[in-house]
Design a protein around this nucleic acid. Structure first.
Lengths: 215, 215
DNA sequence: CGACCTGTTGATTCTGCTCAATCAACGTGG
DNA sequence: CCACGTTGATTGAGCAGAATCAACAGGTCG
């Protein structure tokens, strides 16, 4: 589970985000821990405090309601920071999606890199607000389109998109059922907008069409 | 529109939130501006920078998609701070719902009260994540129940809840249509869970029932 | 091989939307 | 004062999109 400090992680695409590199150098980053598929990074109710930096892989942030319905509030990929919490306890829980390398940042919250933290928190807020629009006002087709474009952008905007998460995760992120996700991918395929080279590999054939679905 | 500094605003219920009072004293707060019903506080595309402190009244934060669908991402009431933005321009727009008194905070972002700002931003994030669960995983009934309980809590948890916003706003906040909002209020009334003394005044008769709908 | 898990597909149901009519409250102008 | 227009809320009828329930295919692992 723990990797020695001499472990060489692939350089994350966006470690040059404003603030992040500074943070990495000042926040006494721990060694990279490898969380295998579905491993819990922190649980609902755990003590909050440290932040987490994604070195590689994908992380899902989830909330579970009392009756078992799950909502994934975010996916985090290389270069992103997560773990912000209001109180002493985590309201959400975080899990590795596909085997992820995570650095724990023990942040001195009264230091001068608070402004980096603020930027990161506000970025999370903006992303979450975007997603609110998707869940509140978009049809199932449009939700899938938005996700595919989001993933494409994060992965470098080539036409080839990798889906690290399975249908169930996509559904719980988009507020749908996994059957609907499956059907809509089918539908996009039939309209020649995407190609499914495998279950987890999507080739975007018609960027325009996807963007038109999102405005 | 502008009120002189000697204007006496009713003391907001939660101005003793951690960080806020400190912020108010150090961020050279301007005089309270009164924004009448539906007045724009800032528009999509406006230059971001200052933050806004709600002295009284209610503010809605909105996003509009290219095809005209609107999502209200938050309502802010007395004691809350809004206006956080990632880039140089506002991605959302803010409007007064019912006549609101707003103080503009010209925040020195590299100062030592960044940690207050961080707390406020993270609080907004947590609230938005809660709302994601509501939009992604809850039925129309449950969404209304969640809103009523949220408003009740903010207004002091007496059984009497005031709805400062109209049906259209509620709908755009909850990802529904205003007809559905109307119907469900009717339904809650018929089940003796609430009473509608007027269009904008709700009396909660059965707290338990509402809470059971939210878990 | 069989058990299991993930994904796909089909049939049916149902929730919430669309379209439309009606009503109440309010303001304006004659 | 009343006729008129406007705006927001309510209610109804019918429809569509997504959920639910169910069957089945393919892959993996014991």
């Amino acid at each position: 589970m723990h990797i020695q400090p001499n472990f060489r992680a692939p350089a994350p695409a966006n470690c040059n985000e404003p603030g992040v590199s500074h943070l990495l150098h000042t926040a006494q980053p721990a060694a990279v821990s490898l969380y295998p598929e579905n491993a819990v990074i922190y649980a609902q109710g755990d003590a909050a405090g440290p932040l987490y930096y994604v070195e590689f892989g994908t992380v899902r942030i989830c909330r579970m309601s009392a009756d078992g319905r799950r909502q994934i509030t975010a996916f985090h990929t290389a270069g992103e920071v997560f773990g912000f919490e209001v109180g002493a306890e985590h309201q959400s829980y975080a899990e590795s999606v596909d085997g992820a390398g995570i650095r724990t940042l023990r942040v001195n919250r009264s230091g001068d890199f608070d402004s980096s933290l603020l930027k990161l928190a506000v970025r999370s807020l903006a992303r979450t607000q975007d997603h609110l629009m998707v869940l509140g006002r978009r049809s199932a087709n449009e939700r899938l389109a938005a996700l595919l474009l989001d993933l494409a952008e994060r992965q470098g905007s080539t036409g080839l998109v990798h889906l690290p998460m399975q249908r169930n995760d996509i559904a719980d992120y988009l507020g749908l059922t996994f059957e609907t996700v499956s059907r809509i991918l089918r539908c996009l395929k039939d309209s020649r907008i995407i190609r499914l080279s495998s279950v987890s590999e999507v080739e975007i054939l018609d960027f325009e069409a996807l963007q038109a679905m999102c405005d």
